[in-house]
Design a protein around this nucleic acid. Structure first.
Length: 289
DNA sequence: CGTGTTTGACCCGCGC
DNA sequence: GCGCGGGTCAAACACG
């Protein structure tokens, strides 16, 4: 019996990143004959036609629930020129060919610096080893991480510290979708300290805290200025693991939950969760972080 | 009693 | 230097 949060995840999960800026380098990998996926660097997603729509399904939907519950994104959200980010465990299906498949290394051919979003080190789609954070090499527009966070209150994806010399990509102009930003730096007693990498995603969910396989302890809640919904702060309960996450609802669409992870887990997801997940669907871990 | 949440106070970076 | 505001702390509380 899945927990309420798991049910919500099964029913509603989709993870999506996109931004408005156009880039010239195009790299699309077909999943079915009339559907393609592009990574952030290519910044161009190909659709069968201007009137078609894409449907995102989670692996959980497909394998656990009796019928697929999915979210059809309106065409206005995904213009052919918008880059598209999909979490590694997300299934993508095409409205016109009725097929769905999880993104993975075998059915998608990705090249370039970074593509899909996953917190799982073994599921790195990046060309740079062990960097499983989404980032872009192409965008040179200077914008600090702080400004990005404060301008939209959504959160950011932050590059791996190994690449902190590069300039951050940008959110789109509508604050509707997400982008990638630079490392934020914090100092301890005058010494420069590198901030942990960040990764955030937007999820359609009834519950605020999604079951991501890790155990979290809430350590704070804050009402952020000019926002309707409070932001909650969580820390991983594992000893010696300093991963944190923030959870907040989107003002413009309260159905959406913005989850921002900071840091990398130094351990596997909690065993209990893994077992319950594996019992329900033996292939689920193939798609999960 | 152990574990997790709540919440007001505090810290600190940033902009002016 | 000062004020603002996001992030964190920690005591009190809730719950199994």
């Amino acid at each position: 019996m899945p927990s309420p949060s798991q049910v919500a995840l099964q029913n509603n999960y989709h993870s999506l990143f996109a931004s408005d800026h156009h880039q010239e380098d195009q790299q699309a990998a077909p999943i079915c004959s009339n559907m393609a996926f592009s990574n952030f660097t290519s910044a161009t997603t190909t659709f069968p036609s201007s009137s078609s729509s894409l449907t995102f399904q989670s692996a959980h939907n497909r394998n656990i629930t009796s019928g697929p519950t999915s979210l059809s994104l309106p065409n206005t959200d995904l213009s052919p020129s918008s880059p598209l980010f999909v979490a590694a465990e997300t299934l993508i299906s095409c409205s016109s060919c009725a097929t769905a498949a999880p993104f993975n290394e075998s059915n998608i051919n990705l090249t370039g610096p970074t593509h899909m979003l996953s917190l799982h080190p073994e599921r790195t789609f990046s060309a740079s080893a062990n960097n499983f954070w989404a980032w872009s090499e192409l965008n040179q527009r200077p914008l600090s991480n702080d400004k990005l966070i404060r301008s939209d209150n959504i959160g950011t994806i932050v590059r791996d510290s190994d690449h902190s010399h590069q300039q951050p990509p940008i959110l789109n102009s509508n604050n509707k979708l997400l982008g990638v930003s630079a490392m934020k730096v914090k100092r301890i007693k005058g010494r420069r300290k590198v901030r942990e990498p960040r990764f955030c995603f937007k999820t359609l969910s009834d519950v605020d805290v999604l079951d991501d396989g890790y155990k979290w302890r809430k350590y704070g809640q804050k009402v952020v200025k000019n926002t309707q919904y409070p932001r909650s702060y969580y820390r991983c309960t594992q000893d010696n693991c300093r991963v944190k996450k923030r959870v907040e609802r989107l003002d413009e669409d309260p159905r959406m939950v913005i989850t921002t992870y900071e840091g990398r887990h130094a351990h596997s997801p909690s065993r209990d969760t893994d077992q319950s997940r594996a019992a329900t669907n033996p292939h689920l871990n193939d798609y999960f972080w």
